Amino acid sequence: MKSGKNTNNHKNRISRLDTIIKKLYKDNSEGKISDEHFAKILETYEIDKNQLINSAAELENIIDASNRNSLMQTVPFVWLKPTPVSMILAQKLSRFYKIYFNIK
């Protein structure tokens, strides 16, 4: 499923961004990059990460809704198929109701 693949791609990218952000903090703390440059880069990564998180959540909702719809469409057909057991049970219940409620 393409949506599932996109969700996994988003999660992988989020994980990579987390790793990059950790390295960025380390480089800033060691003085390898200036505070101003650090702030600009961090802001860009955080925006990208938040967009990916929101997009991944939307994709997961779409997948969940699709799975629920698929299940709702297939399950009733399973229950509607008459089986010998359900037919016997229906006959027994019919007899029981007729006897219990005095129906002829």
Rank of each mutant, 00 (worst) to 15 (best):
G4R: 11
K5D: 07
N8Q: 15
N8M: 12
S15V: 02
L17G: 01
I20F: 11
K22F: 05
K22M: 04
Y25H: 15
Y25D: 12
K26F: 08
D27V: 00
G31I: 06
S34A: 09
D35P: 01
F38E: 03
K40P: 02
K40L: 11
I41S: 07
I41M: 08
I41P: 00
I41E: 12
L42P: 01
E43W: 03
E43H: 10
T44Y: 02
T44H: 06
E46R: 08
D48Y: 01
D48K: 13
I53T: 06
I53D: 02
I53Y: 05
S55P: 00
A56T: 02
A57K: 13
A57L: 07
L59V: 01
E60A: 04
E60K: 07
N61L: 08
N61T: 10
N61S: 09
I62N: 10
I63P: 00
D64Y: 04
D64W: 03
A65F: 04
N67L: 07
R68I: 09
R68E: 13
S70V: 05
L71N: 10
L71E: 08
M72Q: 15
T74Q: 15
T74G: 01
T74H: 12
P76T: 07
P76R: 07
V78P: 01
V78D: 05
W79G: 14
L80H: 12
L80G: 11
K81P: 00
K81A: 07
P82D: 05
V85S: 10
S86P: 01
I88H: 11
I88C: 09
I88E: 15
L89D: 11
A90Q: 06
A90H: 02
Q91L: 15
K92A: 14
L93K: 12
L93D: 10
R95T: 13
F96W: 08
F96K: 06
Y97D: 13
K98Y: 04
I99H: 09
Y100F: 15
N102L: 10
I103P: 00
I103W: 12
